[in-house]
């Protein structure tokens, strides 16, 4: 509150029309900054704690401990880059990285292409649009565990697609990705795309719908084919949505964990390992904490590599601080 200086000569009001009375009064001092909007500051304590303790504190803690030789318990005996050398010399980690690269590349490309194509198809003022959208999006509501288990079942060679096709007379038909070192990652990809493309489609559809109808009128008047309009005019116009989708898909790729656990548990052997899996096993199974910290730090670096160019594109030049 302000320390209000109440006019000592307020009696002067009794003389209407008189020349303005000048009184010398104490000025109000600015109240302490800390206590202004105190309720708001208290309300933001959970957020500030989350930011400082979890997002900043825990992240720094992990990065620092990745330079130690912590095993069962964290300890601060620094060993330099030893954990990182071990990490990059480890076959399982290398398999994880290779898998992440394949899964990531395919997932990114197919999610965008399929998502956009489906959005464009649904945008064609079709009947039952809601029904189609509902069917395509429902997997997104499911847990990765559920998705992984269903596809494990469908891809089961003894009962699933392989058997069904063989029963049709194609005796030598082979479709068993989950038990093949080479193709297991594609089996996971099928399930991942099934779950995730609906979201991308929804985003893209929202983006396409957000475009001014007059663009379509203009392109019709100029006689540009529909597909060309989509590719050459619409895609550049929904760039923000595409960028958002790319960031979402990418952060999903780096985090992929549950799906692999449910579908293959990282197998056969180690052939469907993923970085997140590697981290979890090192930290919680092998009691090799520092190795897990080093691997997770690498994941953080990967996200930063994706995120920084995006942030630059999105907020480039502008300073985003309020």
């Amino acid at each position: 509150m302000a320390d209000t200086g109440i006019s000592s000569s307020s009696g002067a009001r009794g003389a209407p029309g008189s020349v303005a009375t000048q009184a010398t009064l104490p000025i109000a001092r600015k109240p302490s900054r800390l206590f202004r909007n105190l309720a708001s500051k208290i309300a933001l304590v959970p957020m500030i704690l989350t930011v400082l303790v979890i997002f900043v504190g825990c992240t720094i803690w992990t990065v620092v401990h990745s330079f130690t030789s912590s095993k069962l318990l964290p300890k601060l005996d620094f060993v330099g880059l030893a954990q990182y050398e071990r990490l990059w010399g480890n076959d399982r980690w290398m398999v994880s990285i290779k898998n992440l690269a394949v899964y990531g590349t395919c997932s990114m490309i197919f999610s965008l292409v399929i998502g956009f194509t489906l959005a464009a198809l649904l945008d064609r003022k079709i009947r039952f649009e809601n029904t189609f959208r509902t069917i395509i999006l429902y997997p997104f509501a499911l847990s990765f565990i559920v998705t992984g288990l269903v596809w494990q079942w469908i891809l089961n060679p003894d009962f699933g697609i392989e058997k069904v096709v063989r029963d049709l007379g194609f005796e030598s038909f082979v479709f068993d990705p989950l038990h093949s070192d080479q193709f297991v990652i594609y089996g996971i990809l099928i399930a991942g795309l099934w779950q995730g493309t609906g979201l991308v489609m929804c985003l893209m559809l929202a983006g396409i719908r957000g475009i001014d109808e007059d663009i379509w009128k203009a392109s019709r008047i100029e006689g540009i084919p529909v597909w060309k309009t989509y590719v050459q005019i619409i895609i550049p116009m929904i760039r923000p949505v595409i960028v958002t989708s790319v960031v979402l898909i990418a952060s999903g790729i780096v985090k992929v964990y549950d799906l692999v656990v449910a579908q293959t548990s990282g197998g056969p052997g180690t052939s469907s390992q993923m970085p997140a899996l590697y981290v979890m096993d090192r930290m919680f199974k092998d009691q090799n904490l520092a190795q897990g910290f080093a691997a997770s730090t690498m994941m953080l670096v990967a996200v930063a590599i994706i995120l920084i160019p995006w942030a630059y594109l999105e907020f480039g030049g502008k300073k985003s601080r309020g």
């Binding site: 006019s7 000569s9 307020s10 002067a12 303005a20 009184a23 010398t24 104490p26 000025i27």
Partner: peptide, 12 residues
Amino acid sequence: MNTMTAVNTESS
């Protein structure tokens, strides 16, 4: 800054 200021006490 001075801590006193002249104010027109007749003003609204």
